[in-house]
């Protein structure tokens, strides 16, 4: 039997809005994944360090402070630099559509905005982060 998918739910930057991150963390846990939550106010370096130490299959980053165009690309860059390009980076928050396109081009696998159904997020994680489990 394959091991469970491991996900790091992360809050980076100065943003304290943790409702979405906590709901997603619980929902992913209820869906049978192993979930680690970073807690608030992490730097991109701390997030990537935790991801590598915990050997996660994906990072779900939550940003509601408007700093998404800085934080997502920085975390992706650090993952690539540390040889962890296969860790799936996804996330959500108050993020305008045109920024979502730019983030996807920068290597963010998916961005979920307020109101996105949890079932869809769970399906995404199972499909995309599951690839790393199968390898």
């Amino acid at each position: 039997m394959a091991r469970p998918i491991r996900i790091l739910v992360a809050k980076a930057g100065l943003d304290g809005h943790d409702r979405g991150a906590k709901v997603i963390a619980r929902a992913l846990r209820d869906a049978g994944f192993e979930v680690i939550y970073t807690g608030l106010h992490q730097t991109p370096e701390q997030v990537v360090e935790a991801a590598i130490q915990e050997d996660v299959d994906g990072i779900g980053l939550s940003v509601l402070s408007g700093a998404h165009m800085t934080l997502f690309p920085r975390i992706k860059e650090l993952l690539d630099k540390d040889g962890a390009s296969d860790v799936v980076l996804f996330g959500g928050g108050t993020i305008p559509n045109e920024d979502i396109e730019a983030l996807r081009e920068a290597g963010v696998a998916a961005v979920f905005t307020p109101g996105a159904p949890i079932a869809g997020i769970v399906d995404f994680v199972r499909r995309e982060c599951g690839k790393r489990v199968e390898v």
């Binding site: 930057g13 100065l14 106010h41 730097t43 509601l64 402070s65 408007g66 700093a67």
Partner: peptide, 22 residues
């Protein structure tokens, strides 16, 4: 903005990407 709310000046490294945003 978040840096002012958390006690950082705009030019602090932790303020990167957050200045004037929210």
């Amino acid at each position: 903005d978040m840096p002012a709310l958390m006690g950082y000046d705009s030019d602090h490294p932790r303020a990167l990407g957050e200045v004037g945003k929210c």
